[in-house]
Write a protein that binds this DNA or RNA. Sequence first.
RNA 1: GGCGUUAUAGCUCAGUUGGUUAGAGCGAACGACUCAUAAUCGUUAGGUCCCUGGUUCAAGUCCAGGUAACGCCA
Length: 570
Amino acid sequence: MTRHLITSAIPYINGIKHLGNLVGSQLPADLYARYLRARGHEVLFLCATDEHGTPAELAATKAGKPIEEYCAEMHAIQAEIAAGFGLSFDHFGRSSSLQNRALTQYFAGALADQGLIEEVVEQQVYSNADGRFLPDRYIEGTCPNCGFESARGDQCDNCTKQLDPVDLIDAHSTISGSTDLEMRETKHLFLRQSQLKDRLDDWISEKADWPVLTTSIARKWLHDGDGLRDRGITRDLDWGVPVKRGADDWPGMEGKVFYVWFDAPIEYIACAQEWVDAGKGDDWVRWWRTDQGADDVRYTQFMGKDNVPFHTLSFPATIMGSNEPWKLVDYIKSFNYLTYDGGQFSTSRGRGVFMDQALEILPADYWRWWLLSHAPETSDAEFTWENFQTSVNKDLADVLGNFISRITKFCRSKFGEAVPSAGEYGPAEHALIADLATRVAQYQIHMDAMEVRKSAQELRAIWSAGNEYLQAEAPWTTFKTDPEKAAVQVRLALNLIPLYAVLSAPFIPTAAASMLSAMHVETPDWPDDVPAALEGLAAGHIFEVPEVLFAKISDEDREIWAERFAGTRD
RNA sequence: GGCGUUAUAGCUCAGUUGGUUAGAGCGAACGACUCAUAAUCGUUAGGUCCCUGGUUCAAGUCCAGGUAACGCCA
């Protein structure tokens, strides 16, 4: 069986992510990982926090904490929330780990050995009051062209004129407000991505099966203007991976760190080392080195569209440029954005639902189901409370939850809490089994292709098939004249529950576990043979009627939540 | 401004390489059932496939030009 390496884009450390972030990478990655494990594949599913860079430093300062402490705390919080959503990472690492530090320095050295690192001396804005170099986004001033007061260091958002920070009138730091800025010379390392343009272009061209969203973004960056540009991989900051050439010091680069975009994707590899060092695995190399066993690994990455350039170009440039046999990604599944009630999710304005809040108001499965069944695969998708309420109530409570409720309660009242033994399957039963076999096959096709919405649709149809069968066969009527026939009908319907649990577990793991627990069965194997799977509960098997699996969302709840998460509009 | 994505039923979306009468779920109307979380099941209604032009025996699908929405611009 193929081994599967799966990574989700690593969330930035400063703060709790919203539902849009979740559905764009971690959640579909988890769906896929759970599915492949259930199918019997060996899976390594990794994620981590992306901890370096100026925003993290500023957030730590704002929180009044040393950066290391801040990151450690935020990592713990994100890990807890991820667990709350049932994200089944084999390891949730940190880009600030020692493993990533060493590996990032190693890659920089390897790239330098290949002649792909260039030292460039450039002028950058230094803020004396802040004691740091300022990235363009932290410099504002009045545009000399149009008089717009909040022009940024690189461009005026009002008249779109390209600017240099020195052009701005009354340029000031947005961190401290200080106008005590000066231009200073500083030396940086650049990755000569332009040298790798043709190799990257050829590589992307091979990927005919990738989503349009993925390849079109990559092509744009490859072909726009002068093509792929060289890019700085270092910064004048304290917080980050210290610049070294492998294990050696890098003359002239003392006190500088690697730019976050360079070290963050390397964490995918380092995370596998962390996984081993944490005692959870015994060999990471066989997942990452094609010369040491990773040839049969299929590597899939999940991410939002904003992350596509880094994964299609920058990180592959690092891998290819090293000229060493590291595993390259085989498939990139990218997602559009989830919008909130007609606009964007906004951290600063508290608009939309964030991961911690979501878990406060409803169990993870509600969110998992809605988000996955509405995943923004082909275009942006919109979250509205009305849609959420309707979908969840209909799909989870009415179709799935009520099916389990109606059949277990009916059985209890007529036959007791044990699978009835009388009778044998007739034509209707065989028809249902055949129908389910077809649908399960279709479900697998969609899941294998990572067609998230279509998979959800098929799964729902599978749930519905149980209701259709009960409605058509009406054991409550049959029972009056032919109890033995009713027993057959009930036995088959009860057997659907473990089947549904296994099939549904990638989407709704908690509910699936409850279903199995109520039926008193261990997690069954994947139903490669549907007729056999439907013999799982033998006659006489004891079960119990489960608690209500999914309570409905009331109109009142919906209104309260809509109000609560609307945020403070400008 | 440059670039990208999108535009199909009241709503959310499917529609593979162009090929009969454009599909699903929700919502609506009607009906069936009464085991169940006032749940379920069935039937029906509902579309100028954004606009214009082109290629073709044939265009929702390909091409050109528009329009609109959203996003990105290191």
